[in-house]
Amino acid sequence: MATSIADRGYINPTKLVTTDWVAAHLDDPTVRIIESNEDPLLYPSGHIPGAVQVDWTHDLNDPLRRDYLDKAGFEALMSRIGVTPEMTVVFYGDKNNWWACYALWVFQLFGHTNAKIMDGGRLKWEQESRPMTREVPTYAATSYQAQQRDDSSIRAFREQVLEHAQEGLPLVDVRSPAEYSGEKLHMPEYPQEGALRGGHIPGAHNVPWARAINPDDGTFKTADELRAIYEGEKHLMPDDDVIVYCRIGERSSHTWFVLSYLLGYKNVRNYDGSWTEWGNLVGAPIER
């Protein structure tokens, strides 16, 4: 069983809340609970009472270009789910909060930093037999003024990644070992996430994202356990300039959250172009 969040040694423990905390704030008008999943069937099948859904494909991505929504799109989303800039948003979801961290990362691009993750996600809430409902809540639309999307501090682009790799700065590839080695390329006939070449960006460490999680209840490992992985095994340091990536930038946002908030790394960027961009780039260096 996981220790309390306060006892786990995180640098920013307030970025996590417990299922107890969420249960006690279901009717708190200053808190919005948001579910973000990989499986689009989960939210409609039952969710935390009062929680709204933010879907990674429909709500966070630009419908045409490969990019995230723009300022107007983010403001419209926040208005629709009844969030004001002052509200605390708490994300949770399936896959050990993988998509919840992704949503939190996108929210941060627009400056909504008052955001937390429910430790253990949907798995822990269900394990504890807490209430679920199929009722989709409606909230009064808000008027939300967002900042312009800031892609400079927590997002990395391919030219920056190339320069980063050439300088020998740390990269973390959070995909599975088979993807990292190039053995597993992509699924035949899969329309979204294919890559022509397999392998990894030269010099990247391989730390599959889910190593940060206790698989039994989906909670995050303690700071000491996380340091043993990222610092003990891979020799990263909190002052390092780190870029994380996966296939489309979702799994790596989970690792971005762990390094940035739980371990307090100051400069971590997520390369959301990730392998679906790098593995298709003409001339990009690849290591196997």
Binding site: E38, P40, H58, H186, M187, E189, Y190, E193
Partner: peptide, 22 residues
Amino acid sequence: PSELVFDLFGKEISMGKGAGLM
């Protein structure tokens, strides 16, 4: 045909989910 997965669940499903369903 393998398009069944996309006809049922939509083309925007993630690769992990698509791989499992296929």
